[in-house]
């Protein structure tokens, strides 16, 4: 009954040291030596100060900016220290109400646009931090942003194209537009 007690205790100590300290510290050491940028959160810097993470989205509600995915984090959207999805089920009236509200906001910001709204623009992302929207969701907003900024739609479309990432290796994942980079480029173009 108790023969295995000592090996059990010693083995747990050894495994803890090996897989809980040596292994993660070794990964950290290599990562911090050869891939510091990625290992620390892919921060975008301007004048030596971090201004955003390339992988973490930010909230946008100004009609002059492109809007990103709705975010369900609390207490405010795109809270990067409390990632979360809405977890609303497909039949939940709160989901349909929220989607209706988002469509209304989009239509109020752009009264002439009667096109069907791309689904990713009115549904909350899984992490609440999604930095991307689909190319269709960007195209839906091009006319609005161009008009409010007094820019040529072609110019805005060119900026969208620059912020668009294709499928990785040509076939993995989905094509997407980086909302934050696009908005930073728009603000710089002014």
């Amino acid at each position: 009954m108790f023969n295995e007690l000592r090996p059990a205790l010693t083995m747990m100590v050894i495994m803890t040291a090996l897989t809980g300290a040596v292994y993660p510290l070794l990964v950290t050491g290599v990562a911090q030596t050869v891939m510091q940028q990625q290992a620390n959160g892919s921060l975008i810097e301007r004048d030596g100060k971090p201004i955003a993470s390339e992988l973490i989205g930010q909230p946008f509600s100004d009609p002059k900016h492109f809007w990103g995915r709705p975010s369900a984090t609390s207490p405010y959207p795109y809270n990067a220290s409390a990632s979360a999805g809405s977890n609303q089920g497909p039949l939940n009236p709160a989901l349909t109400e929220a989607v209706e509200g988002r469509i209304k906001a989009l239509r109020e910001a752009d009264p002439g646009n009667r096109a069907a709204v791309p689904v990713d623009l009115v549904t909350a992302s899984a992490s609440g931090l999604d930095p991307h929207i689909s190319p269709a969701a960007a195209e839906y907003q091009v006319a609005r942003v161009a008009r409010l900024r007094g820019l040529d739609a072609a110019k805005v479309r060119a900026l969208v194209a620059e912020a668009t990432e294709g499928r990785q290796l040509g076939f993995l994942g989905e094509p997407r537009v980086h909302v934050l980079k696009l908005n930073l480029a728009l603000d710089a173009a002014r």
């Binding site: 977890n87 791309p118 689904v119 689909s134 190319p135």
Partner: peptide
């Protein structure tokens, strides 16, 4: 230009 479908609770890149 879009994945479509039920995108509530899903990430654009996936």
């Amino acid at each position: 230009t879009q994945a479509g479908g039920n995108m509530e609770g899903k990430e654009t890149r996936f």
